[in-house]
């Protein structure tokens, strides 16, 4: 391992941690514009985090150690995931630690911890949120794995850096299955990140909330970490999507030096700007589904992914 790849690994992680809240702020900004409201400041998420870090924690009397440890675990898993996903460069020392299937597992670990923490205090909303979150999770995971299966069929690897490198060496592959997979991936990403149409991140309407219901008992620095982890999760999903479907600009094997890194950073920011605007557009155009309809939505994502797979196999055969 060369020292330079460790430096680039460090740059990537720090960049991810730093700009994840900004990405969330950008989406909120776009949503406000699309909905004809005056937008909150772009840097509001940072100010909120700062404010939360300096408040006193109000902790429920019965909260156990699991409840207090979960924000750190969530943040830890998301930072680690950001270190594994090739958002800037593919030559990452940590990338060989987990392939994309293990990455899905890592997200599941975070989800299980958050659900357990939500059940810890024993409030009605917490357990309700935990149950719904796990339900959405277990329906979304197969769809996501089918998307990754499709990528494996195209490039013969489940490791994200290898996928990006594979795209670089065979850029001419334009497979119809990719379109199906991309749509399925976007649907899964919306569901997993508590966005409309499955969940609404900006509501606390009791009967419809999923993600927010689990965070109700968190306050101050715990809440800040959970929120930061959530925005990192969204950022990570966006980067997985970029690696799978638009790996342009990522510094692949052999592209050393500062130049390609700067290009990669610029490309990443450009893609995030577009992705954030697109996400806001989707959220503004669609209505939130009833919770009973969530399985249908996710089943559709799953079927699209499977269709992509079948299309690939039929055309390839």
């Amino acid at each position: 391992m060369r020292a330079i790849s460790f430096v680039r690994q460090f740059v990537e992680v720090v960049l991810a941690i730093a700009i994840a809240p900004l990405f969330a702020g950008w989406i909120a900004q776009c949503r406000a514009w699309l909905q004809n409201r005056s937008a909150p400041p772009l840097l509001l998420p940072y100010r909120t985090l700062r404010k939360l870090f300096f408040k006193d924690v109000a902790l429920a009397t019965d909260a156990s150690l699991l409840f207090r440890a979960t924000p750190y675990v969530l943040f830890g898993t998301m930072v680690l995931a950001a270190a594994i996903i090739p958002s800037l460069v593919t030559d990452l020392p940590l990338a060989r630690v987990a392939d994309s299937i293990a990455l899905v597992g890592l997200f599941a670990t975070a989800r299980v911890f958050l659900s357990l923490a939500a059940m810890d205090i024993g409030t009605a909303f917490g357990t309700l949120g935990a149950r719904r979150e796990m339900m959405v999770g277990f329906l979304a995971e197969p769809a996501l794995l089918m998307v990754l299966f499709n990528a494996f069929l195209l490039y013969g690897s489940t490791s994200l850096p290898s996928l990006v490198d594979g795209y670089r060496t065979h850029p001419s592959i334009i497979d119809p299955s990719v379109i199906f997979a991309a749509v399925a991936f976007v649907m899964v990403a919306l569901a997993e990140n508590a966005r409309i149409p499955i969940d609404n991140p900006s509501t606390h309407l009791e009967l419809t909330m999923i993600h927010e219901a689990m965070l109700l008992e968190y306050s101050a620095r715990h809440l800040a970490l959970v929120e930061w982890a959530s925005s990192l999760k969204l950022f990570n999903y966006a980067c997985i999507g970029f690696a799978l479907f638009m790996p342009w600009g990522i510094a692949t094997q052999g592209l050393d030096g500062v130049g390609p890194l700067l290009i990669a950073i610029a490309a990443l920011i450009g893609k995030l700007v577009i992705a954030g605007a697109a996400l806001a557009l989707i959220e503004s155009l669609s209505a939130k589904l009833r919770i009973f309809r969530a399985p249908e939505y996710l089943a559709m994502a799953f079927l699209l992914a499977v269709l992509g797979l079948l299309v690939h196999l039929l055309l390839g055969a």
Binding site: A69, Y72, V73, F75, G76, T77, V79, L80, A83, L94, R96, V97, A98, D99, I101, A102, L106, G156, S157, T158, S159, S162, L225
Partner: peptide, 23 residues
């Protein structure tokens, strides 16, 4: 190695160290 690899040890150590650093 290029196809798929997994390292539980580094994953565990990674999570624990990031948690500790964050704390």
């Amino acid at each position: 190695q290029e196809q798929a690899s997994y390292s539980g040890l580094i994953l565990l150590a990674g999570i624990l160290s990031v948690v500790a650093i964050t704390f």
